[in-house]
Design a protein around this nucleic acid. Sequence first.
DNA 1: CTTGGAAAGTCAACAAGGCTGACGTAAATT
DNA 2: AATTTACGTCAGCCTTGTTGACTTTCCAAG
Lengths: 164, 164
Amino acid sequence: MAETPGGENLLFLTDEQLRKGIEAMFFAYRGFTADPDRILEGKDYGRAHHRAIHFIHRSPGTTVSNLLSILGVTKQSLNRVLRTMIEDGLVRSEKGKVDARERHLHLTDKGQMLERELSDAQRARMRAAYRAAGPQAVQGFRQVLEAMMDPEMRRQFNRLKDGG
Amino acid sequence: MAETPGGENLLFLTDEQLRKGIEAMFFAYRGFTADPDRILEGKDYGRAHHRAIHFIHRSPGTTVSNLLSILGVTKQSLNRVLRTMIEDGLVRSEKGKVDARERHLHLTDKGQMLERELSDAQRARMRAAYRAAGPQAVQGFRQVLEAMMDPEMRRQFNRLKDGG
DNA sequence: CTTGGAAAGTCAACAAGGCTGACGTAAATT
DNA sequence: AATTTACGTCAGCCTTGTTGACTTTCCAAG
C-alpha cells in the first residue's frame, strides 16, 4: 500500500486511477447531454439553446451580459441562439427599468414548456444515477466536481447555488 | 426530513439537488477540458484530436472501427482528424497482419510527447480535485458518473478499465 | 449639457467538428 | 463468384464557436 508520512492511503491518486476518472468524465458527459440532445434534434435547436434556456429559467430576468459570463461564449454566439428563440416566442427580452441598456430575459409559457421537457429528461437521468449510487456517493460526486472547476466557474456555480 | 417507508433520507433527490448536480457537471466539464484546450490552441489541433490521441495511447494498435465506436462519431469525422495527425507524424497507421483490411493505430514518439503534455495537464487538475475531495469522495464521484452513462458507454468504459 | 464609455445588437467572414450521401478499393467471408 | 466488411475520400451541409468592425442606446461624470 502507498502510504504517506501522514499515513493516508494515496492509491486513489495513481495515474491509472486518474485516467479512469478522466474517461469516466468523458463517457458520463455523453450520457448527461444525450437526452436533451435527442429531444432537440428535429426541433431546430441545439445544445447552445438548451444552455441558454436552462440559465434563463434558473435566473429569470437575468441580463445578456450576465448570461455571457455564465456561458463563457461571445455575445455574437449567444445573440444568435437568443435571437432565434425570441423570434420563435420562447424567450422574452425586455429593456431594464433601472438601466435601460440592459435586456432582461424571461422564458415565455412556450419557453417554459420546452424547458420542462428538457430538464425533466435530464433530471430523470440524474435522479436514476443518484439513486443508484446513494447519498454518500452523491456528496463525493459534488465535492470532486466542484474541486475540478476553475475558480471563476466555481464562483459562478456558488453564486447560482444561493441567490437567484 | 423526507423519509420513505424504507426509512432512507431522500433529500438528495429533490429537484433542487438534481439541478445543482446538473450545473456542477456543466461547470466542471469546462474545467475538465480547459487545460488541454489551452495547450492545443495555436497547435492546429482541437478537442477531437485530443480524444483520438487519448484512446490511441490508451489502447495502442486499436483499429479505426474500434475507435469509432468509442468516440461515437462518424468515420468521416474521425478520418479528418486522423489524417492530419498521420500527415503530421503524430500517429502511425499500419495494415493488420491477420486481417489486412484493418488499420492499427499507434502514437509515434512525437505523438507520445503531445499525449504526455496533454494528459499531464489533465491529470494534474484531476489529481488536485481528487486530493482536495479525498478518497471517499472520489469513490462516490466514480459511482455517480458510471451510473450516469448510457449502457453502451458503460460497456465501453468497463472494457477499457480492464484489458487494453 | 456634452461627452466618454458601457451595454447591447448587428453584419460579415471564418474555423472546428459534427453530419449525410455517394463512391471506390482491398480483403475477408460465404 | 458474390457479398460483406473495413477503410478512405469527395462533396456539401449544419451548429456553434471565433474576430473584427460598426451602430445605437443610454448612464454617468465632467
